[in-house]
Design a protein around this nucleic acid. Sequence first.
DNA 1: CACTTTGGTTACCGTCGGGAAGTAGGCACC
DNA 2: GGTGCCTACTTCCCGACGGTAACCAAAGTG
Lengths: 125, 125
Amino acid sequence: MSSCQTVADPRVQALVNDLIGRVADKWTMLILDVLAEQGTLRFTQIGTAVPGISQKMLTQTLRQMERDGLITRTIFPVVPPRVEYALTDLGLGLGAAFCGVWLWAEANLQRIDVARTAFDARAAV
Amino acid sequence: MSSCQTVADPRVQALVNDLIGRVADKWTMLILDVLAEQGTLRFTQIGTAVPGISQKMLTQTLRQMERDGLITRTIFPVVPPRVEYALTDLGLGLGAAFCGVWLWAEANLQRIDVARTAFDARAAV
DNA sequence: CACTTTGGTTACCGTCGGGAAGTAGGCACC
DNA sequence: GGTGCCTACTTCCCGACGGTAACCAAAGTG
């Protein structure tokens, strides 16, 4: 926070920490990414676009994101059911903010791999 | 990713997703923040600076961050023990990349709170 | 009448995280 | 010389979280 030159009101700090704790979640970030990347998607489309997520966590994470106002959930009353998810402007903002982390990850993949193998070699002694 | 105008090599994409999954962790982000904010810190100092973390998760997360090359762990062979943690340039880079998310969180605290209470009011019907 | 499709929910179970207690080992105090 | 004390852990126990797989609704199709 203060590394970003922001004020240090302890109450705000606590709230922000809390919010980060809820938003800095593996599945939330990955779902946010595919929605930012591909726009409006259906339930199963997100499921296949996010590698490794279970239906349960997909439902659960989408509900939480909807609750936090990051996405909208539109139900079409047809059979078989059709539900579309799209980012709100709040979600778009978070996606844009998280963009820097993605670029960092892409740029530093190899360095992290090197660090990890070096660490494991040290630990294996 | 592609929302950040990057190439879409599926292998790289998978690796980046994997890396995000490991780094986008509540405790990792909070520890990263206090280290970016306050510089070199000792074990217990991080523990008190990160609200709500248990000793076990503190140890575990620090080890993982050390393994990923985000922090350095310096042991002083004195009694009582003294261990200092500091960000590497890799960790500093991640902290800088994550800065945008922190600013977003601070700027949108109230909007998320509004969205959440509205959602809960709808769900309570 | 059975079968398919889609977006879930539920039961079961293994793993992860929190809380509290234990550990090392040298030093200060009584 | 025994009793604490300090710090950075580790270990044990238990509750909560996440994965797997099965089930469900409701209309259309063969």
